[in-house]
């Protein structure tokens, strides 16, 4: 049974398996072009959101009947919309909405999903019930569920946030559960049982750390997906009201004038796409860095 991979670290040619650390150290030299650019773009969007009140040239909801559907000009770089509101200002403020929704959904989904997943991975009876509920929740298309919730409760930012987060929770629960199920088979967990560690201690000390890396990756995807869902909801007219600018509702209003003024869809669409793209690239990068499978040593 001298499996070469298990004792390979004894040979001098073999590198020790360093990749099991909680967070791998980041080698600056290995930073790739795409993730760096993504981080910069996302940074700029965050700055735009935080400082929107300072840098936006106009009040995003102030209507100006004299300046309806204005072309791009020095005064209005992105032009004005059907009510004469400045599209640049609305787009900058829209970043606030998107980031609140994205970060909020990621945070809440992890906050709810992590404990549920941990418990589900450990208690069989609870698992059976919880997984049926999660299966059912996953069977309902996220958009339709969100639409139903918004249709029933009303379309404030917070309702939309809740409506978007609920369909994301099952994915987090399932992820945590699968990590727990495989980690609890590890001999070091059995060793902890053998030395008399209590269940909470085993969960906290031996199982939870395993979930952190995949959770970070999953959280980025939840974040991107939530921003997208919010935009779709608003685009369909079932999202946040236009008094709170969001990239989705700017585009929703722009649909009427699409052939006339493509900029109404183009600018918020560009911001939205870049934002989601950056988050996804960073998520992929995080996954590649943290995925132990890619760090797996070859047989030597």
């Amino acid at each position: 049974m001298a499996d070469e991979t298990t004792t390979a670290a004894t040979g001098p040619g073999a590198k020790p398996v360093v990749r099991r650390n909680l967070l791998p150290r980041i080698d600056l030299a290995s930073l790739k072009f795409a993730p760096t650019l993504a981080a910069i773009i996302l940074g700029l969007i965050v700055l735009a959101a935080v400082f929107a009140p300072l840098i936006a040239p106009y009040d995003p909801i102030k209507m100006d009947p004299m300046a309806r559907l204005g072309a791009a000009s020095f005064a209005h770089p992105f032009g004005t919309d059907g009510y004469g509101r400045d599209v640049l200002s609305r787009t900058l403020y829209g970043a606030q909405t998107s980031l609140i929704v994205g970060l909020g959904a990621a945070f809440v989904a992890v906050l709810v999903g992590l404990p549920l997943g941990l418990l589900s991975g450990f208690f069989r009876v609870l698992d059976a019930v919880l997984m049926r509920v999660m299966d059912g929740l996953m069977a309902i298309p996220a958009i339709l569920l969100a639409i139903a919730i918004v249709a029933l409760v009303g379309s404030s930012l917070w309702t939309v946030l809740v409506a978007i987060t609920i369909p994301e929770i099952p994915r987090v629960v399932r992820l945590v559960r699968s990590v727990v199920l495989s980690a609890r088979e590890e001999p070091y967990v059995e060793a902890a049982i053998a030395v008399g560690s209590s269940l909470p201690k085993i969960m906290w000390r031996h199982l939870t750390p395993n979930t952190i890396a995949p959770l970070i990756v999953q959280a980025t995807y939840v974040c991107a997906s939530a921003i997208l869902t919010e935009a779709i909801l608003s685009f369909l007219g079932a999202g946040i009201g236009t008094e709170t600018p969001s990239w989705g509702n700017i585009m929703s209003e722009g649909r009427l004038y699409f052939q006339l003024k493509p900029g109404l869809i183009f600018w918020p669409g560009l911001f939205l796409s870049l934002c989601i793209l950056s988050i996804n690239i960073l998520g992929d990068t995080a996954r590649d860095v943290m995925d132990p499978k890619l760090g797996k040593k070859r047989k030597a």
Partner: peptide, 16 residues
């Protein structure tokens, strides 16, 4: 009663 496991790579928590 205590146990020593087969695979020493997996019986110690790599994070501790």
């Amino acid at each position: 009663i205590q146990m020593i496991f087969q695979d020493p790579n997996r019986s110690l928590n790599p994070r501790l």
